[in-house]
Design a binder for these strands. Structure first.
Lengths: 171, 171
DNA sequence: ATCTTAAATGTATATTTTTGCATAAAAATT
DNA sequence: AATTTTTATGCAAAAATATACATTTAAGAT
């Protein structure tokens, strides 16, 4: 552990940073990794462009030719309209989240009755690397994880998809 | 005009080529401009990477981190237009559709648990002429139909909104 | 056809992005 | 706490991509 890192953190640095990146990307127009890096540095994330490149890869951020001239980086979710509505909906759904348990490469999420399929649908839609597939009943979601993906990997990914979840997942 | 250019062309070279690029991108997995360039050269398009870069910009082709490792180029229509993803989502939701019954100007759709509000939201969003409003519980949707709209009118409208539904509705 | 003008392209180069590798940090284990 | 294992990161170098500028090609105009 780094000496001057007072570990009150809930999430690891990486996840925190990637959430910040997502936010920046949905908030402002980003035309290069350099530009994004500058912003991140100002916000106190002390990283290099290399790390940023890896983060963008993890987040599946696309580089798209801009209408005018130049390019812009875009989180795939942002491409859908009604981003806000989706967000609202997702936040709402999180209320139904009860707990998550693991067994080998399987994870089981317990939800309030009726929530399972909706939450699962959010997961399916996000189509994250770590998840091969989900099966949802009424109050239970079975997640089949990709091999060599750790429990924390999955938790972090879930937080990336549903930020509010952070408050419900203990580390 | 260059001397050895036999002018049978209908479109100009540039357009022809860009169409070819689009086709290639939708047909095969492209991971770099170099790779795409190789294919184009084989097909007889005698250009350089610089031109290709410009073409991709014109076509608004996005570079997206691939699920596994690496990147792929994707024609922006696929990403930009939430059409496709919305469609996917709608198709997914249809799995939750169980049956529909009528009574007067009311229709009741039964769904798998948890699906009702999502499907109802699709209907609300489409805002069809035939429907005044919907109320959704967990596995039931109540549809209030406009007067003088027949059961078949509504069924047809539902199919228009959610094409996959056709397979589930008997006539 | 010849000339003029605008668009497209190649060359070389600059810029940006990605990655292998060594190291540091974090997490798990004892 | 000390050790091992795993994961994240910086650095430097490679790879990929974009572009300024000169040149060629196409398209009109006369």
């Amino acid at each position: 552990m780094h000496k001057n890192c007072i570990d009150i953190q809930i999430m690891n640095q990486r996840t925190t940073r990637q959430l910040a990146i997502k936010k920046i990307l949905t908030t402002r127009e980003i035309h290069s990794q350099e530009g994004l890096l500058t912003i991140l540095l100002k916000e106190g994330f002390d990283i290099t462009q290399a790390t940023l490149s890896r983060d963008l890869k993890t987040l599946k951020v696309a580089k798209i030719p801009d209408g005018n001239a130049g390019y812009r980086y875009s989180v795939s979710e942002r491409i859908h309209k009604d981003h806000d509505k989706t967000k609202e909906k997702v936040n709402f759904l999180i209320d139904g989240f009860e707990c998550i348990k693991f067994s080998g490469n399987l994870a089981v999420i317990k939800t309030l009755p009726g929530y399972a399929s909706s939450i699962a649908s959010v997961l399916d839609n996000a189509d994250p690397y770590e998840i091969i597939g989900t099966i949802a009943g009424d109050d239970t979601i079975l997640i089949i994880m990709k091999e060599n993906v750790s429990q924390n990997d999955l938790k972090n990914r879930l937080i990336l998809i549903m930020p509010k979840l952070r408050d419900k997942l203990k580390y």
